Simulated assay, not measured.
Amino acid sequence: MSHTAHIPSHRKPRRSASKMALRAGVTGGVLSTLAVAGASGAANAAEPVTQTIELPTLTTDLSSQVARSADATQQAAANYQLQAERDDAFAKAADQAKKDQAAAEKKAEAKKKAEAAAKEKAEREAAQQAASRSSERTTLSAASSSSSSAAPTTAAAPASGSVGAVISFLQVQVGDAYVMGGTGPNSWDCSGLVQAAFKQAGVDLPRTSQEQSTFGTSVSLSNLAVGDILYWGGAGSAYHVGVYIGNGQYLDAANPSKGVVIQDLSGYPASGAVRAL
């Protein structure tokens, strides 16, 4: 017999196999659950959740559209700038036009006033000249009448007073201006004055000195009568005409510096003469 046989066994009593199996199963199940949970947690911890946004890829067509849109925007901006510049230019032009119009109106008004003043002055001078001519004509008429009675002419005067009508008309025009092509009433050239004078006697003379130098009957310068038409130059090519008023004098529209005057034949002898009355 063992020397320890009388000592109670200190070992724990054995558990039954079934209990041990049950406990092992429970423990294994629990451990399995924990292992799965741990693994799942580790996996989740190892792989963080992220959200990926995929951007669209720019295709060639889209790039072209973007480029065209940019060009259109740039063109629109350029158009706006151009329109703004045009508007500004138009505004400046309109303002300048107003200024020019105002200046033109002011200038026109000044010109109108100047013309009115010049017209008033001309009318005043014309009135003074008319008064002066009237006085001179009265004196000349008296002198002519005296000369006619004192100095007999070389030919008998035509009847019916036609010569008197011509001479009276011519004397009234003394002092009028000479103007090339003038036919009155206040300015004359040589043939215009002679034509108008003979019209007073009912004679229609041609207009030019060339034609008048061949009108009527040719007379010699030594046989002149009052009212004969004198001409300078050749018959048919005369360059000047006047009318003989007796006493060696003639009346004509001489030139721009003299106007209508009475002159002596001795100072400017005529080339020939014709008688139309």
Rank of each mutant, 00 (worst) to 15 (best):
I229P: 09
M180V: 07
A5H: 11
A5E: 12
D228I: 01
Q200K: 14
A126V: 08
P8T: 15
W188D: 00
L230H: 04
T27S: 10
Q65C: 00
A110M: 08
P56I: 04
A126L: 14
K19N: 09
P256K: 06
A94S: 06
G233L: 05
S168Q: 06
A45R: 14
K119H: 10
H10S: 11
A142H: 11
S187I: 02
E47C: 05
S237T: 12
T59V: 01
A5L: 11
A89I: 06
T52A: 12
L58A: 06
D61Q: 13
P269S: 06
S146I: 12
L251W: 05
T208A: 02
S222V: 02
V30S: 15
A122S: 15
A39Y: 12
Q210P: 01
G246S: 12
K119W: 08
E115C: 01
A108S: 12
K113I: 09
E211H: 01
A39E: 10
G248H: 15
S40N: 07
V166C: 13
A39D: 11
A253L: 05
A103R: 03
G181Q: 03
S257P: 10
S141I: 09
A114K: 04
Q51V: 14
G175S: 09
G234E: 04
T33I: 11
G246N: 11
S271M: 11
A201S: 05
L55Q: 07
Q96A: 10
A108Y: 08
A45N: 09
V194W: 01
I229W: 07
A76P: 00
K258M: 14
D189E: 04
Q101L: 11
Q195F: 02
R86I: 07
A89Y: 06
G272N: 12
R137V: 15
G25I: 10
W188R: 03
V179M: 09
Q74Y: 07
L230A: 04
E123L: 14
K98C: 01
